[in-house]
């Protein structure tokens, strides 16, 4: 715990230094560059933790398979705009396997799907957004309302919007020097329907398939003793 605390301290100090340096040294403001550095700083400790953890081959292959399923999930739904089960799969992983696995599957699913759909400046933002979907699902999985079906549905619906709002940010950060509130609201108004479709499809998947997917994943976890390091 002390080790991870030191890591967090170092990263938060580094972020403050980066922010101050960007104001003092770069009067010409390289915001997009700065945003990538910040996202990198925030995600690095989570990957580092995964690197240092005692973990077996089974868990790694399982996480890779889940990330691949989340990425491939976009294929059978290519005909339906903004409807994709990737977010749903990531929420399921977070709920069953915990926050760290949820984050990893989310971030890796973003890289993998973009290898086939095209990498771009949006990749780090997607990695972060989907990583956070998995991580929050894992962190909240023991709250009383997350064990209820309606709680999960609210969670999925809210993330439909949060995801869209976060991804809008990369357009705004890339264009920050000409920032105006009209521009800001314009972008957010334009995305309302897409976010709604995303949120509603999350709710739909959670309602219809949430229970059976949870049961399948729980079964696998129990059958093969995945992520069960106290007993092993």
């Amino acid at each position: 715990m002390a080790k991870s605390n030191r890591y967090l301290m170092a990263v938060s100090i580094l972020i403050v230094i980066l922010l101050v340096a960007s104001i003092v040294l770069f009067q010409y403001k390289a915001y997009l560059l700065l945003s990538f550095l910040l996202i990198g700083c925030i995600m690095l400790p989570m990957f580092a933790r995964f690197e240092m953890k005692e973990i077996g081959g089974r868990e790694i292959v399982m996480l890779a398979m889940l990330a691949a399923i989340a990425a491939v999930g976009r294929v059978p739904f290519a005909g339906l705009p903004s409807v994709q089960p990737t977010t749903f799969v990531i929420i399921m992983v977070g709920l069953v396997f915990g926050a760290e696995s949820g984050f990893l599957v989310g971030a890796v699913a973003a890289i993998v799907s973009n290898i086939f759909l095209g990498q771009g400046p949006w990749t780090p933002w997607q990695m972060y957004a989907w990583g956070m979907v998995g991580m929050t699902a894992g962190l909240l999985r023991n709250t009383w309302w997350m064990s209820k079906l309606w709680g999960k549905c609210v969670f999925g619906f809210v993330w439909g919007y949060l995801f869209g709002w976060f991804m809008n940010m990369w357009i705004i950060v890339g264009n920050l020097e000409s920032f105006s509130w009209e521009f800001f609201t314009g972008i957010y108004v334009a995305s309302i329907y897409f976010d709604l479709a995303h949120g509603l499809s999350n709710v739909f998947f959670l309602l219809v398939f949430g229970v059976s997917w949870m049961r399948i994943l729980e079964r696998f976890k129990k059958k093969y003793g995945l992520f069960d390091f106290q007993r092993a």
Partner: peptide, 11 residues
């Protein structure tokens, strides 16, 4: 990040 790269490669 050897393990993360391996995970990504597998996926």
């Amino acid at each position: 990040l050897p393990r993360t790269a391996f995970l990504t490669m597998l996926a």
